[in-house]
Simulated assay, not measured.
Amino acid sequence: MRESVAVKHSDAEAAKSTADDVVQAFSQSVAAGERSDQPYPHWVLRACLPADTIEDILALPFPAPSLEGVSGKRELHNKTRKYFDAENRAAYPVCEAVAEAFQDKRVIGLIEKTFDTNLDGTYLRIEFAQDTDGFWLEPHSDLGVKSFTMLLYLSTDPSHSDLGTDIYDGDKNHVGRSPFESNAAMIFVPADNTFHGFEKRPIKGVRVSLIINYVTDEWRAREQLAFPEAPIG
């Protein structure tokens, strides 16, 4: 059963696209996705969500947090991170639509089949990330409690074209960078060699993205989850 949250959107306009619209757009994106096996299996998808869903997400009234001169790991700023959690699902229709879509059995089945992962018993976690100048991430693999990672790029500033995710080999040597395009994504299933990060470089304005994960029951920060009482399956 889904978690019983009274969804009230009195302070926000209705989402322009429904959860079903998101399911359809994502499904089409996966069908047209590009796979690379070097240095590990990963995919690049485009047109992942309906265009007006991207507009609604970018309009969310969450201020970009200050880095306070510290970066390298996202968990260094846990207090200011934002999620499509139960509270924001209730407050913002677009958060609800996207969360419902990625909880949908059609999307779950498609992800499991296409990306060869098992999401049974996992929980949906969607982070709304806003990165500003000075941001960087050390190479890391996501191996552990994450069963799927989707890095969905959102911001539309043309200067962000070189702000994709940096890709490393098993020895953490930099070997490439995913393309940064609004509504495009990089996807991989975490393994011991799926090293990725973000090399420090200038960021004009705010680099906006969604980080979509399915995490195991060992995930401790239950308040970050979209449906903390509703595991997949």
Rank of each mutant, 00 (worst) to 15 (best):
T149I: 06
K113F: 08
I203D: 15
D56M: 04
S4G: 08
Q24M: 11
A230M: 04
F115L: 02
S66A: 02
Q38K: 03
S182I: 08
T194R: 01
D52N: 09
P158I: 15
W219T: 07
T122F: 05
H196A: 02
R177P: 00
E34Q: 14
T149P: 01
S71T: 03
E112H: 03
V175I: 08
T80L: 00
A6H: 08
A12W: 07
E112T: 03
A25L: 05
G134Q: 07
D52V: 04
T149Y: 06
V22Q: 07
G205E: 06
A185D: 06
M150P: 10
I126E: 11
F148Y: 09
D169R: 14
E112G: 03
R2M: 03
E229T: 11
G121I: 08
N78P: 04
K204C: 05
E223R: 10
A184M: 07
W136F: 15
D85M: 14
D21C: 01
A25R: 07
L152T: 03
N213W: 01
F227K: 01
H77P: 07
H160S: 06
S141C: 15
S27N: 06
V70E: 04
Y214V: 03
I232Y: 02
D116Y: 14
G134L: 00
D37T: 06
L154A: 07
D142P: 11
D162F: 04
R89H: 12
E138P: 12
K113S: 08
S10E: 08
F128M: 11
A12E: 14
I108L: 05
D131S: 13
T114L: 10
I108M: 13
E3A: 08
P63T: 02
D11W: 03
A51M: 01
T18K: 02
Y83D: 13
A226H: 04
K146W: 11
G72V: 02
N183Q: 04
V70W: 02
A6D: 13
A99M: 02
Q103L: 03
G197L: 04
A97D: 06
N213G: 03
A19Y: 10
F148N: 14
A86Y: 15
M150T: 11
L154Q: 06
L154I: 01
V145G: 13
W136S: 07
D52L: 01
L151C: 03
A47T: 12
D171C: 13
R89Y: 00
L151I: 15
Y40S: 12
L225I: 04
E68I: 01
P61Q: 03
F26K: 04
S159C: 08
M150E: 15
E218A: 09
P139N: 09
F115G: 01
A99F: 09
G134N: 09
E138S: 11
P158H: 09
A59N: 00
